[in-house]
Design a protein around this nucleic acid. Sequence first.
DNA 1: GTGGTCTAGACCACA
DNA 2: GTGGTCTAGACCACC
Lengths: 127, 127, 127, 127
Amino acid sequence: MTEIFDSSTPIYLQLVERINRQILRGELKPGDKLPSVREMGIQSGVNPNTVQRTYRELEGMKIVESKRGQGTFVTENQKILQDMREQLKQEEISHFVESMKAMGYSESEIVNGLEVFLSQIEGSESE
Amino acid sequence: MTEIFDSSTPIYLQLVERINRQILRGELKPGDKLPSVREMGIQSGVNPNTVQRTYRELEGMKIVESKRGQGTFVTENQKILQDMREQLKQEEISHFVESMKAMGYSESEIVNGLEVFLSQIEGSESE
Amino acid sequence: MTEIFDSSTPIYLQLVERINRQILRGELKPGDKLPSVREMGIQSGVNPNTVQRTYRELEGMKIVESKRGQGTFVTENQKILQDMREQLKQEEISHFVESMKAMGYSESEIVNGLEVFLSQIEGSESE
Amino acid sequence: MTEIFDSSTPIYLQLVERINRQILRGELKPGDKLPSVREMGIQSGVNPNTVQRTYRELEGMKIVESKRGQGTFVTENQKILQDMREQLKQEEISHFVESMKAMGYSESEIVNGLEVFLSQIEGSESE
DNA sequence: GTGGTCTAGACCACA
DNA sequence: GTGGTCTAGACCACC
């Protein structure tokens, strides 16, 4: 299975992002083992060296711990995961607000639009 | 000046997006002349044919009117521009909510996070 | 087989016209696959890019659906085809009336001439 | 003033057609003088030889008479003009019926469509 | 194979 | 100058 990567940013960073999201969404839980470097390389259609670089990066962020001979595991340190969650949230919000302002919307229009949107999808949830 | 394009989506669509935003932000006003296809081609580091494809697309959306021998102009039809503004807003909001939910946030957390963010930047507006 | 095109209107529009008529006449039925852009290019003695422009145009009219890797197909949406049929009929009639009036015929002469003509060919139908 | 000619049929035939229509529409009346070969050449952006050929053709059809030293005149023979009028009418009707049938319309649909069309434009004549 | 995008360069029509 | 069409040929994504 070949994956799709945006060629404008390095693949290893995109992999970092993807794994972070998997953790945030609960697809990967604290203590879970990540696929081996080789395995992930095949899954992602990417060179194992790139995966290695990804895991090193995640380890630097304390999100992941490598245990020699056993594999790479999601940290059990809840605080770190919380911090990451918070940080990604801020980035997402910031990007959203920036885009809306770039389109000329005022802050109140932004909040209002969001609330209207949420109330709408509530009504059509299971259609 | 060579521009950077995300290779994952067609250049002509990225150009469409960019021009739409310029119109929404008021950088291009109704009746304004766009750069000629050749001029824009140079500015964007892109083939004139690609720019023309962009302009043709915009013309199909009724956002722009091309007059042979004269140039390409932003429509003066305010209703169309309003519709586009509204549509892009919806897309932006929808994308935002989807991302936040993908990260496991509840609707109330999303609204709350947005409001906190806005109250923060208010304090540091003119720094 | 090289085809003949009227040089006064763009080839891609003439191709659009031709395909529309083929659909209206039932030579192409809903769901039918059109020749590939390359194939049609050879058949028509025209560049594949020109054929693609044609297909893109038809897709914009919702008359055709292109599926990457599979081909281009006549829509199965009967309503669209009916609308097109009606529209082309109106254009044909309008053009006819205009020509006749330009030659100085009154409306009743036009209707009368048509009816006489039709009654004549009825007699010589299967010659 | 440069005129527009369809490059798929000879210019002199297109000129013949045009003059015929002018006569039928009453823009040129029996006995009227046509522009000189040179004059018409300039008006139409066409070589005088081409005009010469056109006039010769019209003379062969008895629609026009050349009087040496005076010019070329529309015939005063009403019968000829009537015949031409009738012939062009037949061609126009025939072409119309053929097109409509090619689109799959029955004879009654053709007549009906025409009548509906005429009744519609009657209501919006002077808008 | 299929459609889709992009380029380079030509030629045309309009003004 | 402007936009519009067309070609030849390249490369990509999907199947």
